[in-house]
Design a binder for these strands. Structure first.
Length: 190
DNA sequence: TTCGTGATAGAG
DNA sequence: TCTATCACGAAG
């Protein structure tokens, strides 16, 4: 496992989203292999926060690529994204599911459920990791508590439409590790 | 299928 | 102030 570099996030959101699948995400003592992501672009993507939110556009302008963008959804769930900028387009990658690898017992204590269900959703994984709003704005490349590692053997990846959104729902901007048992929705591409 | 929950933005 | 909206999950 090799730590990924900042240049990783200086490409198109779609490329970043695709290549983050297979990477290991570590938050303090817990973590897992990313098996599902979604790309969001600040350009012409109505589903992206930056489309309608000035504070989000400001975040994009002021922060370096690789910054964690964490927000509360539906008043209940924290969702983890990474800022992508410096390529042809700026955007975000939403982390949607993990295959748990580290701190599994700790995560199970937080989320009393079996392994396949532990991090199989964007709100579930932040809960399992105990990652909350105070992680918002942390730079992956200068913060000890958060880290990303590149895979030794990149997995086979499939693309499909994003989940749970109403705007621009037709774009195939969701990426999954083929055949993973740890996805937010089952089936090849949801 | 429903419903809770809270930050945000834009209207009044 | 108030209200609509939102990339979800769990119970039932």
């Amino acid at each position: 496992m090799k730590k990924i570099r900042r240049e990783f996030f200086q490409r198109d959101p779609l490329v970043c989203a695709r290549e983050l699948v297979g990477c290991e995400l570590v938050w303090n003592d817990c973590g897992g292999i990313i098996v599902e992501t979604e790309a969001y672009s600040v350009l012409n993507d109505e589903a992206c926060h930056a489309f309608a939110r000035p504070s989000s556009r400001e975040f994009v302008a002021e922060r370096p690529p690789g910054t964690a963008y964490v927000y509360l959804n539906y008043g209940v769930h924290w969702l983890l994204n990474f800022l992508v900028k410096g390529g042809a387009e700026d955007g975000f990658v939403l982390i949607r599911a993990l295959e748990p690898t580290r701190g599994i017992e700790t995560m199970k204590r937080r989320r009393a459920t079996h392994l396949e269900n532990l991090c199989s959703g964007p709100g579930k994984l932040t809960r399992a990791l105990d990652l909350r709003g105070d992680a918002h704005g942390l730079d992956v490349f200068s913060t000890k508590s958060i880290a990303l590692f590149a895979p030794v053997d990149p997995p086979s990846i499939q693309a499909g439409p994003r989940i749970g959104i109403t705007k621009a729902a037709d774009l195939p901007w969701r990426f999954i590790a083929t055949g993973s048992r740890f996805l937010s929705k089952m089936g090849p591409v949801g």
